[in-house]
């Protein structure tokens, strides 16, 4: 019965702290997305303001590893049993990708535009057996370009 108690405690801890962490992270993501909205990121290969001369361009990237909590991991394995959308991993992936893009943007705050943004997901562990963590790693990379004449205040393009 001891192991069952430990299991229930882990479940409760995972649920409470996972929920708190997720709420905090989402609030931070939304605030930072708002702040970095002026810096456009596209998957296109050519700059939007084609007429402006480009000063320099560089490869920028941002990455993050986020883990799922114990409760959601159990929920995911239960869902895996019945089939269907694994909702508990959706927020994990969504948060990881937005965080990676945000970190990429934060690494080049004075850039005018980010081109050819690519997002790669890799998993460090699958979390299908109890002793490993279920986590996701997201890497976002792209090319940041800086226009020669225009200062970052007028990035209206």
């Amino acid at each position: 019965m001891d192991s069952l108690t430990i299991f229930l405690i882990l479940l409760a801890l995972g649920f409470v702290f996972g929920k708190l962490a997720e709420g905090r992270h989402y609030r931070s993501i939304l605030a930072r997305e708002e702040m970095l909205l002026r810096l456009p990121a596209t998957s296109c290969k050519k700059p939007m303001g084609k007429t402006l001369p480009v000063g320099h361009a560089e490869l920028v990237h941002g990455h993050v590893v986020i883990s799922v909590d114990y409760f959601k991991q159990l929920l995911a394995s239960l869902r895996n049993f019945f089939g269907g959308t694994i909702q508990s991993y959706e927020t994990l992936l969504d948060r990881a990708r937005r965080e990676a893009v945000l970190r990429l943007k934060e690494s080049c705050p004075t850039a005018n535009e980010i081109l050819n943004l690519r997002i790669e997901t890799s998993s460090i562990s699958k979390g299908n057996s109890g002793d490993r963590v279920g986590s996701v790693e997201v890497l976002a990379y792209g090319t940041a370009i800086y226009y020669r004449e225009v200062s970052s205040q007028h990035s209206g393009l």
Partner: peptide, 11 residues
């Protein structure tokens, strides 16, 4: 990109 169903209900 996320479902808005409550996780406890799903659980």
């Amino acid at each position: 990109n996320v479902s808005h169903q409550h996780p406890v209900r799903e659980f």
